[in-house]
Simulated scan of single mutants.
Amino acid sequence: MHEAKSSSTSLASTTRLLLRDGSVAADGTLYRQAIGVLQYLLTTRPDVASAVNKMSQYMHAPTSLH
């Protein structure tokens, strides 16, 4: 780890998401499919891992803000 290079993330550190933010999304299936595609993308783009992890926390009840 001494020679590891730092990398910026694609997630804003100042944004705070809550479970009940925004209006209820019309189609939770579309949200889950998008998260699945992003998880597949992680094999080639590890820099988006933190953003995908954060968005995965809202898969059971996504809202319009998520």
Rank of each mutant, 00 (worst) to 15 (best):
L42H: 05
K54L: 15
Q57K: 11
V52Y: 04
R32P: 04
P46S: 03
A34C: 14
R32H: 01
D47Q: 08
T63I: 10
Y58N: 03
A49H: 06
G28A: 15
M55D: 04
V48T: 08
L65F: 13
A61G: 14
P46E: 00
K54W: 01
D47K: 06
A61L: 12
K54N: 12
I35Y: 01
Q57M: 09
M59Y: 04
V37S: 14
R32M: 05
I35K: 07
N53D: 15
L65A: 15
G28L: 05
Q39E: 09
R32F: 06
N53T: 15
S50T: 14
G36Q: 00
K54M: 11
V37D: 12
P62R: 01
I35M: 04
L65Y: 12
T63Q: 10
I35G: 03
M55C: 00
L30P: 09
A34Y: 08
L42K: 06
L30Q: 07
L38S: 01
V37C: 12
K54C: 13
Q33H: 11
N53R: 13
S56E: 04
A61V: 14
P46F: 06
L41R: 09
P62D: 06
V52T: 05
L30K: 09
T29I: 15
H60I: 09
G28N: 07
D47N: 11
T44S: 04
R45F: 03
Y40P: 04
L30V: 15
L41T: 14
Q33V: 12
R45Q: 07
P62L: 05
S64F: 08
G36D: 03
P46K: 00
S56G: 00
G36C: 02
T29D: 09
V48L: 10
Q57T: 08
T44F: 08
L41I: 12
V52Q: 02
Q39C: 12
N53P: 03
V37A: 13
D47W: 04
L41W: 10
S56R: 04
I35D: 06
A49W: 01
Q57I: 08
R32K: 09
M55K: 02
L38D: 01
Q39H: 14
M55A: 03
Q39S: 11
S64W: 00
L42Y: 02
T43G: 11
S64G: 11
G28C: 10
T63H: 07
Y40K: 00
K54Q: 13
Q39Y: 12
P46Y: 00
V52A: 02
L41S: 12
A51G: 04
G36R: 05
S50R: 11
V48C: 08
S50L: 13
A61W: 06
L38T: 06
M59P: 04
S50E: 13
Y31F: 07
I35Q: 03
L41P: 08
P46T: 01
L41V: 13
H60Q: 11
R32A: 02
Y31A: 05
M59A: 08
S56L: 01
T44W: 07
Y31D: 02
T63N: 10
Q57R: 10
N53G: 15
T43W: 13
Q33L: 15
K54H: 14
T43P: 00
Q39N: 13
A51D: 02
R45Y: 07
H60K: 07
H60R: 10
P46V: 03
H60D: 08
Q33R: 13
R45D: 04
N53V: 11
R32D: 00
Y58I: 00
A51Y: 01
Y40L: 08
N53A: 15
K54V: 14
